[in-house]
Design a protein around this nucleic acid. Structure first.
Lengths: 288, 288
DNA sequence: CATACTCTGAAATAATATTACATAAATTTA
DNA sequence: TAAATTTATGTAATATTATTTCAGAGTATG
């Protein structure tokens, strides 16, 4: 990887640079696709600094020199290319549509990774690992996520449930053993039922986790741990929570693997057992 | 794009180059990631040619000079980078894990796009558009996909169902109006119940669609239309059908948009109606 | 207010890329 | 087949580009 991510790295260290290096940095960020074809002198002129400052800037970025900067920027630009959110137009041909949907999905995943709080992930994974029972709850598209959580942690031998009947869910949580976890899922963070269940779970003494689109909300504030997915710019047809779904499942994947690797041997053993059980139902393979 | 695809371009024109330029070309192809940090002289030595030939080679490739070659190669390499399937190891740190899961998800999506049959997509979208009722069925992880289908087409005003009880499903299909659609979902293409329902649907005269991992199978052969997702190389922990899920939801997204755009005005109208209905349940926002 | 430190750009130098040219090889033409 | 012509190639000269040096300006510190 090494060179990668130079542009965001520049953005990050920018305030720590000297004035003239900042001039260079800002210029690079403003027109990276031009920089790639420039000479040091040209850069110096355009950024109103000196060639020495340009080279010094490169060094500050951990590079050997100016040519390496060009190479790094070029790589960075190429990476970003295929991503970005696109709006879907009216008379789009199918091929373009596919490209755009792909692009949106990928961008959504990348953005989500960008705002992932790794420490939080680890904490949550450990919390789930130690939980005697897990209750995941969401409605609409978020119900799918809840169901995914339940299925995954069942494979790890957890008592994991995605109960959709609020009465059943309430009763289950009321008597859940200490350390049990409630996961409230709502992309909008404003679903009445999820909020209601979150409050109940908290009152009942469960460990609470919220799983929402990025940003503060009553739901996330209430919960002991909060996980966020990127917020895709909403478009009309996109109302089916499309972009966000990929991100949500992605975070569940991450949590699942982190949780499984806490004791990988035991996890693999349990996964095998669930697989055998499924196979005993006479399907040729375990996964569907 | 311009610069892009330099490596494959080199490959293509290679036979048309002069001998010494070919030496250079072959060297570039053999170690592009090194070239990016080399000087002309170094290139000349390593490729057993001369600096003049290196520059001439660059010109032959339609570039202004050697530095441009480096930039172009760097961009090309970066594009390939982020893809590929990675296995998850035992004592992986969380950051690496996230990178790999992202990479796998993205690769899975790209592969799926690669083997997408656009004509088939359009046919299926039209079939769904005209269907008086849609029945999606899958078990385990595929049940989530079925549920996603149901939710999406409900928004489009379809009678779409993801019934999990086989008796209820059978009864529903038995009396379904002509032109109704059954979608059988199984990543492994070998799930007993799905196959059973597919046979029943066919016998009953429904239009049948299969949705499986790539490759021929009894399920896909039986169905009138078949859609495929990429097959990720299976790994132990991955048994939770992780890689494939993203691809499956992706195809559903594509189908949904293509179907919606057949009559976009009517679709938007119906989507709005479902949204209003949800809002009337007093949630702040429609999407969860 | 002196001292040390940092920052900066002009100029010198080093490195690198490009061009010019001489020669060798291949191809054409007589 | 031999001379003429074109093409290909590497060396060396040149031009360009990158880097370093250094002196002076600006700041902070005691």
């Amino acid at each position: 990887m090494g060179v990668g991510q130079i542009l965001s790295r520049i953005e990050n260290v920018l305030p720590k640079l000297t004035q003239s290096e900042q001039k260079v940095a800002r210029f690079v960020l403003s027109a990276p696709e031009e920089v790639v074809f420039m000479s040091v002198q040209e850069m110096a002129n355009r950024s109103l600094s000196s060639s020495a400052s340009v080279v010094r800037f490169c060094r500050s970025m951990g590079l050997k020199g100016f040519p390496e900067l060009k190479v790094a920027i070029s790589a960075d630009l190429a990476k970003d290319q295929k991503s970005g959110y696109y709006d879907l137009n009216k008379n789009e041909n199918t091929a373009d549509l596919v490209d755009k949907i792909l692009s949106n999905a990928v961008q959504s995943l990348r953005d989500t990774v960008g705002l992932l709080d790794l420490e939080m992930i680890e904490k949550v994974a450990h919390t789930l690992y130690n939980a005697p029972a897990v209750f995941a709850y969401g409605v609409g598209a978020s119900a799918l996520v809840a169901e995914d959580i339940a299925q995954k942690w069942l494979r790890l031998g957890k008592n994991a449930y995605a109960l959709s009947d609020l009465h059943v869910l309430t009763m289950s949580m009321a008597n859940a053993p200490k350390g049990s976890v409630f996961i409230g899922i709502s992309y909008s963070a404003a679903t009445k039922e999820v909020l209601q269940m979150m409050k109940f779970a908290k009152k009942t003494g469960l460990v609470t986790i919220s799983f929402t689109g990025f940003g503060k909300s009553e739901l996330s504030e209430l919960s002991d741990f909060s996980l966020f997915t990127s917020l895709a710019p909403e478009a009309k047809v996109r109302s089916a929570a499309t972009g966000s779904k990929h991100s949500q499942f992605f975070i569940i994947d991450v949590l699942y693997y982190v949780c499984a690797s806490i004791d990988i041997e035991a996890s693999l053993d349990k996964i095998q057992k669930t697989r055998d059980a499924i196979n005993s139902l006479k399907r040729t393979e375990a996964a569907d």
